[in-house]
């Protein structure tokens, strides 16, 4: 029995956080675990902040709304300010340091500063900072296996955009190896 993952992904709409959350959720599904994925919705999705709660557990999931995540991916400053304090003690936080030039004073959580957006641009993976950060989360928490993550990508990247699959794989790997 693995530890529950309560993952909150937050940033601007359009950064692909809902998608990254879906890939994480699918990986959990492939591992045969219980999962839930809950997005924020409504006008705030139109260019404002977007966030998404993903729970992966071995028992049926109660509230899908995550208030104190044990895993956090943040991709903009407002989200960082809003959520870094809410992470549960012991949590793992992945911060896109190319978007957020701030460091937390918290010592009860593990924070990894990854310049996801810059890495994505430099690596020719524009728009895939989300997956780089997810790759880093995979590395640091081991919430699923690399194989399950890959299968999840195959599920989530539509067949119409098969060319994007390789890009996504590369992004996850980049984050994993950062």
């Amino acid at each position: 029995m693995s530890k529950d993952l309560t993952l909150l992904l937050a940033g601007f709409g359009g950064q692909g956080l809902l998608f990254a959350g879906k890939v994480a959720a699918y990986a959990g599904l492939i591992d045969g675990r219980e999962i839930s994925w809950l997005p924020s919705y409504g006008p705030e999705m139109r260019g404002g902040t977007a966030n998404c709660s993903v729970t992966i557990s071995d028992s049926p999931i109660g509230s899908p709304l995550i208030l104190n995540p044990n895993a956090l991916i943040v991709m903009n400053l407002p989200s960082y300010d809003k959520y870094i304090g809410s992470a549960a003690p012991g949590a793992t936080a992945i911060v896109d340091s190319s978007m957020i030039d701030r460091k937390t004073g918290r010592h009860d959580i593990s924070v990894f500063y990854v310049p996801g957006t810059r890495l994505a641009e430099e690596g020719g993976m524009k728009g895939l900072a989300n997956m780089i950060l997810l790759g880093k989360l995979l590395k640091e928490t081991g919430f699923t296996s690399f194989e399950s993550m890959d299968k999840a990508l195959v599920k989530c990247v539509s067949a119409k955009h098969a060319d994007l699959l390789e890009q996504n794989r590369k992004a996850v790997k980049t984050g994993f190896e950062y």
């Binding site: 999962i35 839930s36 919705y41």
Partner: peptide, 10 residues
């Protein structure tokens, strides 16, 4: 409700 409508589960 909005939560059940918007959330994804298997």
């Amino acid at each position: 409700d909005g939560m059940l409508g918007q959330m994804m589960e298997p």
